[in-house]
Design a binder for these strands. Structure first.
Length: 136
RNA sequence: UGAGCAGACUAUGCGGCAGCGGGAACGUUUUCAGGUCCACGAGGAAAGUCCGGGCAUCACAGAGCAGGAUAGCUGCUAACGGCAGCCGAGGGCGACCUUAGGGCAAGUGCAACAGAAAAUAGACUUCCGCCCCUCUGCGGCGGUAAAGGUGGAAUGGUGAGGCAAGAGCUCACCGGAGUGCAGGAGACUGCACUGCCGUGUAAACCCUAUCCGAUGCAACGCCUAUUGGUGCUGACCGUCUUAACGCUGGCUCGGCGGACGGUACAGCAAGGGCGGCUCAAGCGAUACGGCGACGUACCGCUUAGAUAAAUUGCCGCACACGACAGGACCCGGCUUAUCGGUCUGGUCACGGC
RNA sequence: UGGGGUGUCGCCAAGCGGUAAGGCAACGGACUCUGACUCCGUCAGUCGGGGGUUCGAAUCCCUCCACCCCAA
């Protein structure tokens, strides 16, 4: 879903897939059952190490959120927040983000702020051995 | 001025920064990926999936039955259960609105409770006359045809004449039926005559007329990695057999196929990619034909094509302070949700001239 | 996306044109020193919503809503 090329600040060009899309139901189920759960008011994060050099992101917007317009909005908000914060995340994880009903009352800034302050640090605490793209 | 009716259109706008989708061009590069830049990027319902088509495949989809859909008439349309105009019925003072509106005179079924009786003929009570008699009553014989509290519905209704008492028995009007004439493209309408006529329900079975092959883009076509001998097809070998069995939409006719096991030779299915995929029964303007739905001619325009799935985030300004809501093969309808705004044409009431 | 089905007291349900059965639960009473079991009685229904056909609709028809299942 979010495939991209990342140019390092030193000027050295390397082809890196930042985040891959998670498509199979099997992987989602594995994350729910065996992964780490980080709940919060707006979203729930599930994470589980994969044996790859990239992250894989899955977004769940269930029927409880509302109609198609509400679900699409939730997806957009999550995707936007992830785009702003994916550089800080550890590498080599399968991550599922589940939207909750309260998310629709918030705007994108608060979700992005939450991820930077609490979500990503929590991933680092659990998976301290994983490398990351930039420090601090 | 107020109230109300019908139809059509519209669906916050502008700017800045960052971001997303596919596309054209530029230019870098062996190629891919990426970069720069340009214009474009959800709806009136995209929804529900209730109908109708296009398109694709199946290979007989043939014949008949069964099953399903529709139901005033005439048209429109690719088609429709849609739309337009008209007819009938009902509602509204009116503009106008609603209407599954064929056939119970082919057959069958049902009509609870109440009521004398609920579908087919009359029985019962009442009424009238005569006879017997204990002479009021009761009983018997006969006449008459609908008066009988009910019910949604009672053998046409109301009034008058008539009679022993009554009765379409007779008459007038109304309703309904049949026949004829006239008008209309038709549904149907009008008039005249006959004549006295047994309910309601087919959104009960059913009958009549018309229509319907099935499955759906996750259809289907092409390319390809790997795996497996699991499933299917062909080929080869062996065994059994000429009547069964299997397939062919549910059944019958008809049609097609011998069946089972082994070999692992060939192909297919299962993953991924590409096509299908958006220029089309397309949209807009004008003219002509038509009451209208719509059609014809000519000119102009190109307007999403994603594949875990793109339209956003933040900020500023304006005001009416922003509803319902997001494409997934594509169209035509219907139905449902919806903050408001604009325009057009009728109607009624009150007031003024 | 396509196809199929179900909605009836608080729960499980029967009824398919004519008064909405039954069981569990709840409440009251009896039995018991008390409770359970058992027995007797009571209560509770917009038949998912709206419209239509019919004299009459939970039932027939149309249309909306909610939920469930199947293919992928």
């Amino acid at each position: 879903m979010i495939c991209g090329l990342f140019v390092l600040s030193q000027g050295e060009v390397s082809v890196l897939l930042l985040t891959d899309a998670m498509t199979e139901n099997k992987l989602f189920q594995l994350c729910y059952r065996k992964g780490t759960c980080i709940p919060s008011r707006m979203v729930v994060l599930y994470a589980r190490p994969n044996q790859l050099a990239v992250n894989r992101l899955g977004i769940t917007t269930g029927k409880k959120l509302g109609n198609a317009v509400c679900r699409s909005r939730a997806r957009r908000l999550i995707r936007q927040a992830w785009r702003e914060n994916e550089l800080d995340a550890p590498i080599g994880l399968d991550i599922v983000i589940v939207a909750r009903t309260r998310l629709l009352e918030e705007n994108a800034v608060s979700l992005s702020h939450y991820l930077r302050k609490y979500g990503i640090p929590a991933l680092h605490r659990v998976y301290a051995d994983k490398p990351m793209r930039r420090k601090g």
